[in-house]
Structures are given as C-alpha cells and as structure tokens.
C-alpha cells in the first residue's frame, strides 16, 4: 500500500509538487507576520494551483491546442480547458496582489511597520488617543 502510494505520487509528480507548494504558500499566508511575505505566500499558493491545473490538462505526446495544418483530431492536442482557467486565474491574482501591495504601502506609511500584529496594536492605540 505504502509503496504504491509513493509510486503514484511520483507518477503525479507535478501535482505532488504543486500541492507541497500550495501548502507552503498557505502556511506563509496564514502564519507569517510580515505583510510582504504574506503576499509572497499568496502568490505561491495561487501559482501552485495554476501548476496543478496546467499539469491536469497535459497529455503525453500531444501538442498545444493551436490548430496546425487543419488537423482537428482530438488525439492531436492537449485539453484546452485548464489552460483557459489558468489564464483567468492569473488575472485575478494580479489584481489581488496589486490591491494587497497598495494596502501594505499605506499601512507602512502610517505605522512604519510591516508586522501585521504590530500594525493591529498600533491601530488600536491610535483609536484610543
């Protein structure tokens, strides 16, 4: 059982790697107090998902889904759906990253800190004054 599990993971090496990256990104986003690193973690997490999707669309020995020489046979091309999903996902992640970075800039200007906990404490103090 155990051997076959590892073997299967090695066969699915792209997914395995992307899941590990997803976990790492998730950890950083949840755990790290530095806002910039949180944003990096978010990007790692998103990218890992795209790697996962992209590897799911791949079929060994087939070409990218752009019609060449009028060949329109299923057996010639890989699955186009995941590629499209990844394209959409990338734009979403660009927007959220820009928003988070802008928020970080404003918070840093105000509190001179990138540490989220410190920012929360300082914000609370500021409110009471």
């Amino acid at each position: 059982m155990d051997v076959s599990l590892v073997e299967h993971l090695l066969l699915n090496i792209e997914e395995t790697v992307s899941i590990v990256l997803f976990g790492i990104g998730f950890t950083i986003l949840l755990l790290h107090r530095n806002l910039i690193k949180k944003i990096m973690g978010m990007n790692i997490m998103d990218t890992a998902t795209y790697l996962f999707l992209a590897s799911k669309g791949y079929i060994t020995g087939r070409a990218v889904p752009i019609v060449v020489d009028g060949i329109q046979d299923v057996s010639a091309y890989i699955n186009p759906v995941p590629s499209g999903l990844v394209l959409t996902g990338i734009v979403v992640s660009v927007s959220t990253t820009a928003l988070m970075l802008a928020l970080t800039i404003r918070l840093y200007e105000r509190y001179h800190s990138l540490d989220l906990d410190e920012i929360l404490i300082l914000a609370k103090e500021e409110e009471q004054i």
Binding site: F22, G25, F26, L29, L30, L35, K38, M42, M45, D46, T49, F52, L53, K56, V81, P82, L85, G89, T96, L99, M100, L103, T104, R106, L107, R110, Y111, L116, I119, L120, L122, A123, K124, E126, E127
Partner: peptide, 30 residues
C-alpha cells in the same frame, strides 16, 4: 488606520478561502 488594518486582515482571510475554493474546484474538475 483601523479600517485599513481591518481590510488587510479581511483580504488575507478571504484569500485563504479563495485558495482553498479554487483547489477544490481543480480537484473536482480533475
């Protein structure tokens, strides 16, 4: 100050949620 720190907290938690949702969708698609 407080609304912005609240906003970044909200964004972080929401991104965790979206990440999980997206990976769930990918698995389902698979």
């Amino acid at each position: 100050g407080r609304s912005m720190s609240a906003a970044i907290r909200y964004m972080i938690m929401s991104q965790l949620g979206s990440g999980l949702f997206l990976i769930g969708l990918s698995l389902l698609y698979d």
